[in-house]
Design a protein around this nucleic acid. Structure first.
Length: 427
RNA sequence: GGAUGGGUGGCCGAGUGGUUUAAGGCACCGGUCUUGAAAACCGGCGAGGGUGCAAGCUCUCCGUGAGUUCGAAUCUCACCCCAUCCGCCA
């Protein structure tokens, strides 16, 4: 949600930000509504004051027993009453339009975000490790998983349809192990607080993180009008909704391991095989609530936390700075972590770390009181995957596959798998 | 699912039609006192908006929306949410 005052004072910056995202200028329309609203409000207030004054006089007159004076004052107020009612209705209708318009406008990119239309314009920031070398032709993860007898898309389709999977044995355990490994790292070494949040939320929460109103189509909705979370970003960030924090409380850092549910409405035909794009997947999420001046450093820190998971798993990856055209709605700057998949011979997104400025905080009224002057400010929010567990499993299968189709277990993971060193058929 | 109670400022909590400009307390801030702190005492202290260079003036807000009234935290209706008990259930 944008600050009207900012749009009023910097309409050219506002439109430039939208343009960078490939959107038409909107400040003129917004400001017209804003001016209309203010004019309406000012007029309305005059009438309200007149009514309030008259009402007080009526009270006073009646107190003195001067019914005649009271009677004539009541006459005068009758006219005001109608005007006020009309004025309120008008203000309400303008507010409605203004809020609807504002709610549908994405966040503005920071200045150091590269201009671009789509993912082809993203910039590589750095690269870590090297692709593993194979003496055989590496397979894709679904071939490996199915051959192991531990990954079953056919049965999943019987139960739930396309884009679901049944994991068994060592792979089912691997999901749990990966989650535990990631959570331990983030909580014990990086200071995040582990949270087990609700997986179903109300409209307000989804509006707060900006899945609503624009992206209802991408979500699953229950019959009693709740939403299955598409990411733990939603409940974790909304932990601070409608709150007034103390500056000393910040930063707040939360992590959670949850399933995520996505309708994948516009993704027909994309990544139809394998675990890459599912209606339900597991993810460890990171969320930070910080003061504005710490936004940038926290963003780098969070990205580094996610990277550390890949480093310890010995996975080759690169860090991409997303261009203006590829960023999510609420983000003002985003780093994607892309892991190397030998089977696909491609880098694929495995984490996305975004800073949202006060965009989400405004939507959910998450404020904090400054130590200095006790003024209230909107907090800044950040979120990132640390990491997408399903895709991490894909990366491990493809990067650690061996000639016989078995999977070597990365050292860091072995303690979480009871010392298991290799995942083999029917293991 | 059934029954009951309830939603008031950062928190607790009073308030059933007109000095409510929302009592009082806690927390917080400033001051007095003190070597310093605590205690005590004194004072200050809600949010959002409009207008103005500013000091200021002013409007709205007591879950949400509609209604009654000259005037609503207070009365009426609908809705939302929360709590407790019972039933069911992991």
């Amino acid at each position: 949600m944008h600050d009207l005052k900012f749009i009023r004072e910097h309409p050219e910056k506002f439109d430039a930000g939208l343009k960078a995202r490939g959107l038409p200028a909107q400040s003129a329309g917004i400001l017209r509504l804003d001016a209309e609203r203010r004019q309406c409000v000012t007029q309305l207030q005059e009438w309200q004051k007149a009514r309030n004054d008259a009402s007080k006089q009526i009270g006073a007159a009646k107190g003195k027993g001067d019914d005649a004076a009271a009677q004539s004052l009541m006459q005068a107020v009758a006219d005001l009453k109608q005007k006020i009612q009309d004025g309120e209705a008008r203000e309400q209708s303008i507010d409605l339009k203004l809020n609807a318009a504002l709610a549908a406008i994405p966040n503005l990119p920071l200045e150091d975000v590269p201009q671009g239309a789509d993912e082809k314009d993203n910039c590589e920031v750095r690269r870590h490790g090297a692709p593993p070398q194979f003496s055989f032709a590496p397979k894709e993860h679904f071939d490996l998983g199915e051959a192991l007898g531990l990954m079953d898309f056919e049965t999943a389709a019987k139960l739930s349809g396309a884009r679901f999977v049944v994991l068994k044995g060592a792979l089912a355990r691997l999901e749990r192990a990966l989650a535990a490994f990631m959570l331990d790292l983030h909580t014990q070494e990086f200071g995040y607080t582990e949270v087990a949040p609700p997986l179903m939320v109300r409209d307000d929460a989804m509006f707060g993180t900006a899945q609503l109103p624009k992206f209802a189509e991408d979500q699953f909705r229950t019959t009693n009008d709740m939403w299955l979370i598409p990411t733990a970003e939603v409940p974790l960030t909304n932990l601070v909704r409608e709150s007034m924090l103390a500056e000393a409380d910040l930063p707040l850092r939360f992590t959670a391991f949850t399933p995520c549910f996505r309708a994948e409405a516009g993704a027909a035909g994309r990544d139809t095989r394998g675990l890459i794009r599912m209606h339900q997947f597991a993810k460890v999420e990171l969320v930070s609530i910080v003061t504005p001046e710490n936004s940038d450093t926290e963003h780098e820190r969070m990205t580094a936390c996610a990277e550390e998971v890949l480093k310890r798993l010995g996975l080759h990856y690169r860090v991409m700075l997303l261009c203006t055209g590829d960023m999510g709605f609420a983000a003002r700057k985003t780093y994607d972590l892309e892991v190397w998949l030998p089977g696909q011979k491609a880098f694929r997104e495995i984490s996305s770390c975004s800073q949202c400025g006060d965009f989400q905080a405004r939507r959910m009224q998450a404020r904090y009181r400054l130590k200095e002057d006790k003024n209230l400010q909107f907090a800044h929010t950040l979120n990132g995957s640390g990491l997408a567990v399903g895709r991490t499993m894909v990366a491990i299968l493809e990067n650690y596959q061996q000639a016989d189709g078995s999977i070597a277990v990365p050292d860091a993971l072995q303690p979480y798998l009871g010392g298991m060193k290799v995942i083999a058929r029917n293991g």
